[in-house]
Design a binder for these strands. Structure first.
Length: 468
RNA sequence: GGCGGCAUAGCCAAGUGGUAAGGCAGGAGCCUGCAAAGCUUUCACCCCCAGUUCGAAUCUGGGUGCCGCCUCCA
């Protein structure tokens, strides 16, 4: 039985979708004004795994992840650099997409852009005014928190406490300091609206995009724990007051990545970008690192942890090397995997199941059995988003040739011979040396390969090689 | 101040009442000319104190330490 920890009830709940076998999930996407970092990686890997798992279970899943491309930070950056907001969002959306691809995250079914959903946002704000939950002032429109008695239900913040703790707001236009902007006056970058030129508040963007692409009531709304308040609290208030029905059944929140025990974030300027990490580690290593922890727990980043994850991932993925995915899987392993994942996505336990399967591949009594377990390993590993093609680390001819170019000269190999053959040829030269017990020469050749990024593996059956 | 979370081996981490999954590193061994890779094997009584119980890492109370949210943030 699939269960999730619902932030709304703060309890583990059985997952029952609104429509049988159909799931609508929404994840708060990036504000595209800067490069994505490891914290984002954690969030999007976590929900990518949820998406993959729901599909694996046979749910017809619609995954919607927005792109926030109207925002103060974007405008500020654009103004500072003297370029248009579109220049900024175009650059960083491309960068984000690239990072997601690098992490082997599946593309969501829908990736709406805030700028393309302005009409729906205006309609929603209008509706909130009509329903008596919002009021316009001087080109702005605010949501009146007092009017919605359940406000604070998600973040578990009693309204009175919020009120008491609220900062003294210099904005005299608001009726209460807790009221938040649905629409902000903006004569420079604004859009036409019934209240004059302006732009939407951040919260209404998600409410409107979720409504437009998934409907008034959805199954899952997920995001980083820092979005719980005020973002999700406000979305919840707006959507329920505008639509008059339950907005989200399951609210899921992932924990943070910390570095030196502090939350990794742009404002603390202690972040590592996904791009930079991918230069040093492959996507499997990063995923393994993220997935060894339960998604709601904090993850402390350090190089040792990531190196250890890289070693683990390499061994796990490597166990399926040389095998393919088939339709046949070991049901017992699949059930153990499901048992782990059903329990609020216990990926740590799921990884232990994968290691057990990897072990069975090695200990299989015959080829057929090995194939079955390897196929199981790949099937389940892919549910966690591992990329098994990385096990072989295949490089194309031209790339390989480029790598071993120095060896052609050293060993006087004919330039017309392809890289694979050239390698085999050099290995046979080495074998001859080894047969003659010329260990110095043998070791020299091994070192030459090593310098070119090629690892030689000696065994009883002979010498094989692989790209490091 | 309000709200929420965490504390398990050298490191990462699962486990929420029945005697500690898994990964990394380390040790030992196999293999090897030597290595590397691979394989086999080994490695903890769970922050402290008190309580409940036949039995607690797991429940209750009290400490101590750490983190997050309450402002933009995944």
């Amino acid at each position: 039985m699939l269960k999730f920890h619902n932030s709304l009830s703060n309890k583990l709940e059985e997952f029952i979708p609104v429509e049988d076998k159909k799931v609508k999930m929404y994840v708060c996407g990036p504000t595209v004004y800067d490069k994505a970092h490891l914290g984002h990686a954690r969030c999007y890997i976590t929900w990518d795994v949820l998406y993959r798992y729901l599909k694996f279970l046979g749910y017809n899943t619609t995954y919607c992840r927005n792109v926030t491309d109207v925002d103060d930070k974007i405008l500020k950056k654009a103004d500072m650099q003297g370029v248009s907001p579109e220049d900024i969002t175009k650059e960083f959306y491309a960068s984000f997409e690239n990072s997601m691809k690098g992490l082997n995250c599946l593309k969501p079914d829908v990736e709406p852009r805030a700028t393309k959903t302005i009409g729906e946002m205006i309609a929603m704000v209008k509706k909130l005014i009509d329903n008596g939950f919002a009021y316009p002032v001087d080109g702005d429109v605010y949501f009146e928190v007092e009017k919605y008695k359940k406000y604070g239900q998600l973040s578990k913040q009693p309204i009175d406490d919020l009120m008491a703790g609220a900062r003294v707001d210099t904005d005299e236009k608001k009726k209460s300091p807790l009221d938040f902007a649905l629409w902000k006056k903006d004569e420079k970058h604004g859009y036409k609206s019934p209240w004059g030129l302006g732009r939407p508040g951040w919260h209404i963007e998600c409410s409107a995009m979720s409504k437009k692409f998934l409907g008034d009531s959805i199954d899952i709304h997920a995001g980083g724990a820092d979005l719980t308040f005020p973002h999700h609290e406000n979305e919840l208030a707006q959507s329920e007051c505008a639509n008059g029905c339950k907005f989200v059944n399951y609210w899921l929140h992932n924990g943070f990545v910390t570095i030196n025990k502090e939350k990794m974030s742009k404002s603390l300027n202690n972040f590592l970008t996904i791009d930079d990490l991918l230069k040093k580690y492959d996507s499997n290593a990063i995923r393994f690192f993220i997935l060894t922890n339960h998604y709601r727990m904090p993850v402390e980043f350090n190089d040792e942890a990531l190196n250890s994850a890289a070693a683990g991932a390499k061994r796990l993925i490597g166990a399926a090397c040389g095998y393919n995915k088939t339709d046949e899987v070991d049901e017992e392993s699949v059930n153990a995997f499901k048992l782990a994942m059903d329990d609020d996505l216990n990926t740590s336990k799921a990884l232990a199941v994968l290691f057990a399967v990897a072990d069975k591949v090695k200990k299989a009594s015959d080829e057929k059995e090995a194939r079955l377990y390897a196929s199981t390993l790949i099937t389940l590993g892919e549910v966690l988003g591992f990329d098994f093609s990385l096990a072989k680390k295949e490089v194309c001819e031209s790339e390989l040739r480029e790598m071993i170019l120095p060896l052609y000269k050293t060993f006087e190999i004919d330039e017309n011979i392809c890289a694979n053959e050239a390698i085999e040829k050099i290995i046979s030269i080495r074998k001859a040396a080894r047969d003659n017990k010329d260990w110095a020469k043998s070791d020299l050749i091994r070192d030459e390969f090593d310098k070119c990024g090629i690892l030689l593996k000696d065994s009883k059956e002979g010498t094989t090689w692989q790209v490091k």
